[in-house]
C-alpha cells in the first residue's frame, strides 16, 4: 500500500478534532484489518496516541469488531446433517 495516512498538526484537542473530521476512516480500517504497511500502522498508532477524537474512532472500530467476533452466537451443523452430506457424496461416485 503506497498511500499515506493523513498528517495532522496537534495544536490542542479541539483544533485537532476539527481537522480530524477529515481524517479518512477507510485508512483506519486498513490498519485494523491488517492491510496497511508497517509505516502506515506506525503513523496511525502515533497519531491516536496524541489525538483523542481519532483514538475514540479507532477504539470504537476495534470494539465493534470484538463484539462481532465474540458476542454473536456461533451455530454448528448437527452430526446428523454432516453425516447426510457424507452419505450423499458417497452416492455420487
Amino acid at each position: 500500500m503506497a498511500e499515506k495516512l493523513p498528517q495532522h498538526d496537534h495544536q490542542g484537542k479541539s483544533d485537532c478534532q476539527d481537522k480530524c473530521k477529515e481524517f479518512d476512516l477507510q485508512k483506519f480500517y486498513l490498519v485494523l484489518d491488517g492491510e496497511a504497511n508497517s509505516a502506515q500502522t506506525q503513523q496511525l498508532k502515533a497519531h491516536i496516541a496524541d489525538c483523542y477524537p481519532c483514538y475514540q474512532h479507532y477504539d470504537l472500530a476495534v470494539a465493534i469488531r470484538k463484539i462481532l467476533q465474540y458476542k454473536i452466537t456461533k451455530k454448528c451443523m448437527s452430526i446428523k446433517d454432516i453425516e447426510e452430506i457424507r452419505a450423499r457424496i458417497s452416492q455420487m461416485v
Partner: peptide
C-alpha cells in the same frame, strides 16, 4: 467516511450490548 450520526457512539457503550442485539443489527 465519518457519519455525523455516529459520533456520539463510544466503544464502552458497544461493549455493553448483548449478542442478540448485535446479531439483529447485523
Amino acid at each position: 467516511g465519518v457519519t455525523t450520526t455516529t459520533t456520539d457512539l463510544r466503544a464502552e457503550m458497544v461493549q455493553d450490548l448483548i449478542g442478540d442485539e448485535v446479531a439483529t443489527a447485523l
